[in-house]
Write a protein that binds this DNA or RNA. Structure first.
Length: 536
RNA sequence: GCCCUCGUAGCUCAGUGGAUAGAGCACCGGCCUCCGGAGCCGGGUGCGCAGGUUCAAGUCCUGCCGAGGGCGCCA
């Protein structure tokens, strides 16, 4: 049993002894922000005081006295603090035991709680339209989606990464028109695509003057390019799902028929309408235009029906940009109308990424290619840059500042910690330092505050991974990795592992501490999709 | 007009309803006899405004102000 569980159990038992019945799950132990407040603290006395009509400090005092009289394993002392908190200081042995557990579990199973129980989950992200190269705006959340997939996989979900390819409709025709115009040596239409890439594609295009044929040809070229960019970032999609396929396979028509049979369709003005207001949307929506074309929403409903019903995903997480969040209400309404529990669809809205020169747009040609950013600062720094903060945070990128700061990018700070670890191991090997199995090492020698700080951070990893998974918030893991790297750098500076005057037994203990730090960094960086190099 | 997200230090951002709100960058000082100085140590009164809920609010609720995004028979 770990220290927190033993503490919680003791709290429940001692409360019962005082005649207060409380469930184990209602006892919340947290790791205080300030070290002076001990290793764990609980607000249970504050929570209970109201219903019991008792003074919280007094209650906490009684509880502390009982716990101190029969202390659980490794507890040094329980103390009342502030308005009625109960703080617990543990003996360092609890951290030494944790170190043993970390090293034993190692990368494969430390901080890998099964929260998802194998639930089949699809994460759809990026899905940038194949009408131009992926840029730092529409590609920004690629690292987010991929890191989330990694984190949820580690925590027991069965995750599939998906890219929805919008390869049909008006924009493809517009793309085709732009290509054909370039081939004729003309400027693309005003609303068309102005980027240089259109000319490059036009030079390769040998097909007919049909706008759809030209558009699809261009979309294929562009998609191959997007795929290559994603690969550079280490992002591999399990599925590239085509909107054209959804339409041409009859699924759109079938979805509309199902809605009709459920009574949610009416015809008006030559168009087919979905009565979305029945399900909370702000207005009804057209599914088939009067010209006979399906709308984007019709395709999207068919697509999501395909995800849930045909492919059997129990949960779908769509990562959208704020510019398309307007479609969410309609999509949810459609799911409900189709008899699919809308709570199975999770939509994460990422705020907009813009340039100092203004909003990015493929049509106008004002954008920075993701490839360009990767060329400038490398794939690891590119990924971490977008994983530093919550996706709720709107970001304005100044490429000059990003480049300038790339030398001080947090990614180097973290990777440098990993490289130092590798270096220590290398030196240990070169000097033929004897390495004993952990059972034969006195970990109790690890008493330096720097050593304990590293351990304290490492024991937090399981909780951090869990939070990152449940909150769909990879940046929480980024924060943790940076904290661990900082703790390690401080340790490295103050505690020589093999320096002069370091007792051989202490060297042994520190080598295991270093190994645990390596495991933690390795897990964290892997979940973020960032390399953990041995040399820099 | 209605809806969504966000306002925290000069800048970029953390902060599961808890205790004295923290990091990085920038700026100013220190620190290399040891395993990599891409490092370490020190220097800090800032939660947009006003109410409310609570033992406790940066965090939850309401209103206002400000920023971004949406509200198509576009995708």
């Amino acid at each position: 049993m770990n220290a927190a569980d033993a503490l919680a159990e003791s709290i429940v038992n001692e409360l019962r002894a005082l005649g207060i019945d409380v469930a184990l799950r209602d006892v919340h132990l947290e790791r205080p922000a300030r070290k002076e407040h001990g290793d764990f603290s609980t607000n249970i006395a504050l929570v209970l005081s109201k219903s019991l009509g008792r003074n919280p400090r007094e209650l906490a005092g009684e509880l502390a006295a009982s716990i101190n009289a029969r202390p659980p394993r490794n507890l040094e002392v329980a103390q009342v603090a502030g308005p009625g908190f109960l703080n617990f200081r543990l003996r360092p042995a609890w951290l030494h035991e944790a170190l043993g557990e970390i090293v034993t579990a190692a990368e494969s199973s430390y901080a890998a709680p099964d929260l998802g129980h194998g639930e089949r989950t699809q994460i759809e992200f990026v899905s940038a339209n194949p009408t131009g190269p992926v840029h730092v705006g529409n590609g920004w959340f690629g690292a987010y989606g991929d890191a989330l997939a990694r984190i949820m996989t580690r925590t027991g979900w069965s995750v599939s990464r998906e890219y929805y390819v919008n390869d049909t409709g008006g924009q493809i025709r517009l793309l085709g028109e732009s290509v054909l115009a370039r081939r004729r040596g003309e400027v693309p239409p005003e609303q068309g695509y102005q980027g240089e890439y259109v000319g490059e594609i036009a030079a390769q295009y040998e097909g007919s003057d049909d706008v759809v044929e030209a558009g699809r040809f261009a979309a294929e070229q562009i998609l191959a390019n997007i795929r290559a960019t994603m690969e550079r970032l280490g992002i591999h999609f399990d599925e590239w799902y085509s909107q054209a396929f959804i339409e041409e396979s009859g699924r759109v028509a079938a979805t509309i028929e199902e809605l009709r049979s459920r009574g949610h369709i009416y015809d008006e003005g030559g168009a087919v309408w979905f009565r979305a207001t029945t399900f909370g949307d702000s207005r009804d929506r057209v599914l088939v235009k009067s010209n006979g074309d399906a709308t984007y929403l019709a395709g999207d409903l068919a697509y999501h029906r395909n995800k849930f019903v045909e492919r059997g995903f129990h949960r779908v997480i769509d990562v959208f940009g704020a510019d398309t969040h307007g479609q969410v209400a309609s999509l949810r309404a459609g799911m409900e109308a189709l008899g699919i529990d809308p709570s199975r669809l999770e939509v994460r809205i990422g705020q907009m990424i813009s340039l100092v020169s203004g909003r990015m747009s493929k049509r106008s040609g004002n954008y920075v290619r993701l490839d360009t950013l990767i060329d400038e600062i490398g794939p690891d720094a590119t990924r971490l840059l977008s994983l530093l903060s919550s996706i709720d945070q709107a970001t304005t990128l100044d490429l000059d500042i990003v480049k300038e700061r790339s030398a001080e990018n947090p990614v180097f700070y973290v990777q440098y910690a990993h490289a130092r670890i590798a270096s220590i191991k290398k030196v240990a090997f070169e000097r033929a330092v004897d390495t004993r199995p952990i059972e034969a090492v006195d970990l109790g020698l690890l008493e330096h505050e720097r050593e304990l700080d590293v351990l304290r951070t490492l024991v937090d990893l399981p909780r951090v991974v869990e939070e990152a998974a449940v909150d769909r918030a990879p940046y929480k893991l980024t924060n943790w990795v940076r904290r661990l790297a900082g703790d390690f750098h401080s340790f490295y500076h103050d505690c020589y592992v093999m320096g002069e005057g370091v007792a051989p037994d202490l060297t042994q203990a520190r080598l295991w501490l270093v190994e645990a730090a390596r495991i933690g960094l390795s897990i964290g960086l892997d979940l973020l999709g960032v390399n953990a190099p041995d040399e820099m």
